[in-house]
């Protein structure tokens, strides 16, 4: 149900470009339905996930 993948951005540049990865870490939710730039607190990530899945 939940898949969490670390992606080495320099090895997969097309993917990083596709999702407009500007800095790291950057978390892309459900292939672009949401995105979080930087290492954010758990509740901020949860808020963005909620926004992306609804």
């Amino acid at each position: 149900m939940i898949r969490a993948e670390g992606v080495e951005a320099t090895e997969f540049p097309e993917l990083a470009n596709q999702f407009n990865v500007r800095g790291v870490p950057q978390t892309v939710i459900n292939a672009g339905m949401g995105t979080v730039v930087g290492a954010v607190p758990e509740k901020n990530l949860l808020a963005e996930i909620k926004r992306a899945v609804n």
Binding site: M1, I2, R3, A4, E5, G6, V7, E8, A9, T10, L15, A16, F19, V21, V24, P25, Q26, T27, V28, I29, N30, A31, I49, V53
Partner: peptide
């Protein structure tokens, strides 16, 4: 969760 959740964390 009712639908799959896929998180991709881009790192270097």
């Amino acid at each position: 969760l009712e639908k799959p959740l896929y998180l991709q964390v881009f790192v270097t």
